[in-house]
Design a protein around this nucleic acid. Structure first.
Lengths: 338, 338
DNA sequence: ATGAAAGCGCTAACAC
DNA sequence: GTGTTAGCGCTTTCAT
């Protein structure tokens, strides 16, 4: 009596109650068509009366498969990742898969922990939207289980991946600034350790080079790409003599751009004196004091495509890894189009 | 050869390779202190060489317990829930538990699906931040497994729960409006089907009654409490003759308040003509054109307290259910304090 | 259509 | 300290 029951109701209990064998209960649950209608009804009633729920551990152990996939995310505070999560969830649901989310909170150790957890849980597969540069996740990605990487472009020899073309995004951002008349562009980004940031920077450079105009390009590196870093960068810019200030700023993220806007908007006219473009299309961009022009990332599509790819890999169909690269999109708002 | 291996490496493989028995490998993993140092080293090396990862299904099935808890969330787009998730995650980590998140996307059917999934997965326990009124989740909450409800106040006879005092929040909001001089207050909220919304409304009423002043109170009900609903409500208000317009609006959510501000801010002076207060302290509130005064919910604390409660319930210590009710906090910004 | 029985990979006694 | 072994609750042949 003082012993905690390991499990209240087992399949054998149901079988006994329904007056059938365990195998029949299993069939009733997994292959209803193989069971006589009356038996089925009896089993279902017993299940209801007993409040039976299958033990997924025993199920997976015996059956050797799972219909749950895992998603390891970097940063739920960033709405881009929330979009990815919802896209992945929608895709998974549609394929009859359930998806579990783990949020590594920008912490590599947690990311590892969750990846290991999913591995031990023998989930059918994993979607990974990683924290680090693709190079750093190479080890992870060599795991023997199905895994598709999101938000990084991987060598298709290795894995499927779905990412957004960051170089193109940087290009579009700078091109837009140039087209709206900017001649001194500042690119503000974080460390090149993060692939996307580096790629965006390269896109900016290419746009400047391609423009065929005399464009001055200043590159400012900040510790991270969040709002406070933007404020810092803005202060930096304000300290410069007016003729050394950029007339257009491409920020590596919306949060960065938001910080810039917060500090700059009552000091200079945006976009007349300084135009600002962000990156990500976060809610923050839309709801800023000055709505921020941005490069939108199709997060929902990324998640969805990832789920599709994973399902294909899971289905046992002949499958070759693919690298899907989606195009970002320019969303013009007030910060560049006063 | 054409057969897919069920599982590449088992504990028996490791045992063979290390020249020990399976039990010893198990001990090396679970009770390293019971194993000789040299044996331990041999086992660990074998594990490394073989790339072995424990099968968590077999583990849980044999061991009868799990160290993973689940969190079922309503809406990851709402930063309040992200805060809860992170608080819960931090709390869980600290107790050596891992936490898996499922996002029901405001869909009750999905919520059920995930709850069932967690049940079948025999997770140690569940944290539920539900979609519906507490009454509607009563059935769910009667599951025999440890579960603590977040964001709803439950009868402690039933379950542990952690929630924020919404009535107090509504009270604080209206009191603030009254103190800053408003005499005609509009409360804009959604259907009373959602407990928090109804409670906030009641708090507003009580503040008006308690004020000892002649306050006119108009209650406007909108279909939901998201940004578009706020815009709709704002249009409604603008159509009224000026003397029928409120001079203070308490919105049931920040998104609602944001919609109001978006439409109102270039038609009337905020807060001089109309003061606006939101609810939640979403990022949206801080980053609105006019930063929005709001009632902050301690989401991180809610998640953390939930994890703590669940751990206590899991630990087998004598445990009685408790209802924890946290206080919301007024955050004054420009929309009421021009 | 249903029953019987052999595992799935591991943990936890218990014996040595 | 280490090996042996009996299950954990289920799926899945294979008989019947």
């Amino acid at each position: 009596m003082s012993d905690v029951a390991r499990q209240s109701v087992t399949m054998d209990d149901v079988a006994r109650r329904a007056g059938v064998s365990r195998g029949t209960v299993s069939n009733a649950l997994n292959h209803p068509d193989r069971v006589a209608a009356t038996t089925l009804a009896a089993v279902r009633q017993a299940i209801g009366e007993l409040g039976f729920a299958r033990n997924d551990h025993a199920r997976s152990l015996a059956g050797g498969r799972s219909t749950t996939i895992g998603l390891v995310l970097t940063d739920l505070e960033n709405s881009y990742f929330v979009d990815i999560a919802q896209g992945a969830e929608d895709g998974a649901m549609q394929h009859g898969l359930t998806i579990l989310i783990a949020n590594s909170q920008r912490d590599e150790a947690r990311q590892r922990t969750y990846l290991d957890l999913f591995e031990e849980a023998r989930l059918a597969g994993t979607l990974l939207a990683p924290h680090t540069a693709s190079q750093a996740i190479a080890g992870t990605v060599q795991s023997s289980r199905p895994l598709v990487a999101l938000n990084v472009a991987l060598d298709p020899a290795l894995r499927c991946s779905v990412s957004v073309d960051n170089e193109l995004g940087g290009y579009l951002a700078a091109q837009h600034l140039i087209e709206t008349g900017c001649r001194h562009i500042a690119y503000i980004g974080g460390s090149d350790r993060l692939d996307p940031i580096r790629e965006r920077r390269q896109g900016v450079r290419r746009a400047v080079a391609d423009s065929g105009r005399q464009i001055r390009l200043t590159e400012i590196t900040v510790p991270a790409v969040r709002t406070p870093d933007g404020r810092t960068a803005a202060l930096d810019i304000l300290q410069r003599p007016p003729d050394a200030r950029p007339d257009g700023i491409a920020a590596a993220s919306d949060l960065l751009a938001l910080g810039l806007v917060q500090v700059l908007h009552d000091k200079v006219r945006i976009p007349e004196e300084i135009a600002i473009i962000g990156y990500d299309d976060n809610a923050a961009a839309r709801e800023s004091i000055v709505p921020i022009t941005t490069i939108a990332q199709p997060g929902h599509e990324v998640g969805r495509a990832g789920a599709d790819l994973l399902r294909e890999e899971l289905s046992g169909q002949p499958h070759t890894h693919r690298q899907i690269r989606l195009a970002p999109q320019l969303r013009i708002r007030q910060s560049t189009a006063g």
